[in-house]
Design a protein around this nucleic acid. Structure first.
Length: 453
DNA sequence: ATAGGGTTAG
C-alpha cells in the first residue's frame, strides 16, 4: 500500500515535468516489483496525457485502466472534462459528462465548475449561468473557484455590471473576495474602461491588507498603457520592480506590445533584450510579440526565422501569428505573398480569422486594388465593422461615393458602427460631387438605422 | 483536477 503511494509520488512528479516516458517506465518497473498502479496512478496519467499529448490519447488510458481491473472515478472524468475545456471543445466536454453519468459516477462541484467555465469560454453565458444556478440551488457547496469562474465569465462576456453585483454580494454567499477575485474584477473593469471602479477595488484590496501580486500590477500597467497614460504605466512598472516582483513573460509582452503600438521601437527593443537576458522562456505569445516587432521594423526575414523557430520548438502558430505575418507582408507592400499566406492560414483551419482578412482588405485598397478588396470582403463569412470602415474610407478616397454609401448603410443595418470619420467622408464626398439629394437621403437613412439599432 | 494578467487589423 505504502509502495503504491511512493509510486504515485514518483509518477506525479514526472508528469509535472512533462516526462511521460519516465512516468510510463516507472509503472513498468513497479509492476515488475509487484507494486501495482491504482486509480490515483491512472488519474495522474490521464491528466498528463490530456495536457501533453491529446484528448484521444488520454481517453485510451481508460481502456488500460479497465484491463488492469481499475474503475475510473470522478477525478478521471474531471481530468478529461478539464482537458476538453482547456481546448474549448464544448461538445467533447458534454460527451465526457454524459459518459460519466451513464457510468453511474456522480459529478462533483469541480465537474460543474469546469463545465461552467467551458460554456463561458465558448461564449455561451446563458448556459453557464444555468449551471451556476444549479450549483447554488443544489446540495453541493459552491467553492471559491465557482464564484471566481462565474465573475471572470461575466466580465469576459460583457456583463461587467452583473459581475460587480455578484462581487458585492459574495459575503451573502459566505465568501470573502480573494486576491484572484480582485484581479478578475480589476481586469474586467479596466477592459470596460471603468478605471475609477477598478481603482476602487484596488484600494479596497490594500485596505483589507492583501498585497497585490505581479498579476495585479501587470493588469493595471496594461490598463494605463491602453489609455495612453504612459508615465503612470511606467511608474507602476518601477513600483512592481521595487517591491521585488520580477517581470515575467506576461509583463514583458504587455509592455513591448504597448511600445510597438505607439511606435517606440527602440524602447520596445530594450525590453526585448532584457527579456532575453533574463532567460524568459519564449512561449507562443512572446514569439508573436517578437515577430510583431520585427514586422513593424520591416525585417520580414527575421520574422520568418522566428516563425520557423516556433514550429521547430513543437509549438503551433495561432491566428495571432498568421495575422501578424499577413499584416507585416501587407505593410511591406508584398500583397501577393500576404494573399498566399491568407490562403495557407485558411487551410490550417483559421478560416474565420476576421482580423487577417481585414488586414488584406486594407492592404489591397492601399495598393490600388479596391475591386479585389471588395471580392475578398464578399467572400468573408463574418464581417465586422473594421472591414466595413476600411472599405468605406478607401472607396471615398477613389471618389466612389455611391458605392461607399451603399456599404455604409448595409453596415449600419447589420447593427455595426463605423468611425464617425468614415460617415463624414461619405457625406462630404457626395455633397462635394454635387450629389446633394443622395447626401440628404443617406443622412436620413443613417439616422433611421441608428434609431432602429 | 477547476479560477486571474500578455500577442493581431481602421
Amino acid at each position: 500500500m505504502l509502495s503504491t503511494r511512493l509510486l504515485n509520488i514518483c509518477i506525479t512528479s514526472f508528469c509535472k515535468s512533462r516526462d511521460l516516458a519516465k512516468a510510463e517506465a516507472v509503472i513498468v518497473d513497479g509492476i515488475r516489483l509487484d507494486i501495482l498502479p491504482d486509480v490515483v496512478t491512472y488519474n495522474a496519467l490521464v491528466d498528463a496525457y490530456c495536457r501533453i499529448v491529446g484528448l484521444d490519447a488520454a481517453y485510451s488510458i481508460l481502456q488500460r485502466m479497465r484491463e488492469a481491473g481499475i474503475t475510473p472515478d470522478v477525478v478521471t472524468y474531471n481530468s478529461l472534462i478539464a482537458g476538453a475545456a482547456r481546448r474549448c471543445l464544448l461538445s467533447r466536454v458534454l460527451d465526457f459528462f454524459d459518459e460519466m453519468l451513464r457510468a453511474g459516477i456522480r459529478p462533483d462541484v469541480w465537474s460543474y465548475n469546469t463545465l461552467m467555465h467551458c460554456f463561458f469560454k465558448v461564449g455561451k453565458p446563458d448556459e453557464a449561468n444555468a449551471i451556476f444556478r444549479d450549483i447554488i440551488l443544489s446540495d453541493f457547496l459552491p467553492c471559491a473557484t465557482t464564484f471566481n469562474i462565474m465573475l471572470n465569465g461575466l466580465c469576459k462576456n460583457g456583463y461587467i455590471n452583473n459581475a460587480l453585483m455578484l462581487f458585492r454580494n459574495l459575503e451573502h454567499h459566505g465568501f470573502v473576495p480573494q486576491l484572484v477575485t480582485c484581479n478578475i474584477l480589476i481586469n474586467g473593469l479596466c477592459k470596460a474602461r471603468r478605471l475609477r471602479a477598478a481603482r476602487k477595488i484596488l484600494r479596497e484590496l490594500g485596505e483589507s491588507g492583501i498585497e497585490p501580486n505581479s498579476i495585479t500590477y501587470t493588469t493595471v500597467m496594461k490598463c494605463c498603457l491602453m489609455s495612453k497614460q504612459y508615465q503612470q504605466g511606467l511608474e507602476i512598472m518601477s513600483l512592481m520592480k521595487n517591491k521585488g516582483y520580477a517581470f515575467d513573460g506576461f509583463s514583458y509582452c504587455t509592455i513591448i506590445s504597448a511600445l510597438v503600438k505607439t511606435g517606440r521601437m527602440e524602447e520596445a527593443n530594450s525590453y526585448i533584450e532584457e527579456m532575453m537576458t533574463n532567460g524568459i522562456e519564449l512561449d507562443l505569445v512572446s514569439y508573436n510579440t517578437l515577430i510583431n516587432w520585427y514586422c513593424k521594423e520591416g525585417d520580414l526575414e527575421t520574422a520568418y526565422k522566428l516563425l520557423h523557430e516556433i514550429e521547430k520548438g513543437g509549438l503551433e502558430c495561432d491566428k495571432y501569428t498568421h495575422t501578424i505575418i499577413i499584416n507585416g507582408l501587407c505593410k511591406a507592400g508584398n500583397i501577393e505573398c500576404a494573399l498566399r499566406h491568407l490562403e495557407y492560414m485558411c487551410t490550417m483551419g483559421f478560416d474565420s480569422n476576421v482580423v487577417a482578412f481585414n488586414c488584406l482588405i486594407d492592404g489591397l485598397c492601399k495598393s490600388g486594388q479596391i475591386d479585389r478588396a471588395i471580392k475578398l470582403f464578399e467572400s468573408m463569412e463574418v464581417r465586422d465593422s473594421f472591414a466595413y470602415t476600411s472599405l468605406v474610407c478607401n472607396l471615398c478616397k477613389v471618389k466612389r461615393y455611391k458605392c461607399a454609401a451603399k456599404l455604409l448603410l448595409s453596415c449600419l443595418k447589420d447593427g455595426m458602427k463605423v468611425l464617425r470619420s468614415a460617415r463624414r467622408a461619405v457625406l462630404d464626398g457626395l455633397r462635394g460631387s454635387g450629389l446633394i439629394h443622395e447626401a440628404n437621403k443617406l443622412k436620413l437613412e443613417l439616422r433611421m438605422a441608428q434609431i432602429l439599432h
